[in-house]
Simulated assay, not measured.
Amino acid sequence: MNQQLAFMPALLACACAAQAQSSVTVFGALDAALTHSKGSVASGTTMSNNHWGASKLGFRGIEDLGGGLKAGFWIEGAIFPDSGAGGATNTNNQPGGQGSVGGLTFGRRSTVSLFGPWGELRAGRDLQPHYLNIGLFDPFAHIGIGQAQLPTSTVAGVTTTWIRASNAVHYRTPGTLGGAFVHAAYFLGEKPKDGAATARDGNGYSLRAGYEAGAVRFGVGGMQTDFATGRVTNASIAGSYDFGAVEVMAVAMRDKVAGAPPDGRGRQLGLRVPRGAHEFRAQASRYTSTAPSAPRTTRFAVGYGYDLSKRTTLYGIVARIENAGGAARTLEGALAGPDGSATGVAIGIEHTF
Score class of each variant (00 low, 15 high):
Phe218Asn: 01
Thr105Val: 09
Phe280Val: 14
Gly116Gln: 06
Leu132Ile: 02
Ala10Lys: 09
Arg109Gln: 15
Thr173Tyr: 00
Gln3Thr: 15
Ala33Leu: 13
Val101Gly: 02
Gly67Phe: 03
His170Gln: 10
Pro151Tyr: 03
Ser206Phe: 02
Gly204Arg: 08
Asp242Trp: 02
Ala260Tyr: 01
Phe7Ser: 14
Ile163Pro: 01
Pro274Asp: 07
Gly219Leu: 05
Leu127Ser: 06
Ile321Ala: 09
Gly67Arg: 03
Thr312Ser: 09
Gly157Gln: 03
Ile134Pro: 01
Ala123Cys: 07
Tyr131Met: 07
Arg208Met: 13
Val302Trp: 08
Gly210Ile: 03
Val232Trp: 09
Phe7Pro: 00
Gly28Trp: 07
Glu190Val: 02
Met47Trp: 06
Ser289Gly: 04
Ala15Thr: 10
Ala258Arg: 08
Thr160Gln: 05
Asp226Trp: 11
Cys16Ile: 15
Asn93Cys: 06
Gly326Thr: 04
Leu57Tyr: 05
Asn90Pro: 08
Leu150Trp: 07
Ser240Lys: 08
Pro139Ala: 04
Phe115Thr: 15
Gln3Asp: 15
Phe243Arg: 02
Ala148Gln: 14
Ser309Val: 09
Phe218Asp: 01
Pro129Asp: 03
Ala235Lys: 10
Leu34Arg: 12
Asp31Phe: 10
Ala20Asn: 11
Thr288His: 00
Arg231Glu: 08
Gly146Arg: 13
Glu247Leu: 13
Asp138Gly: 01
Ala282Phe: 13
Val24Ile: 13
Thr290Lys: 05
His142Glu: 15
Asp226Thr: 06
His351Leu: 12
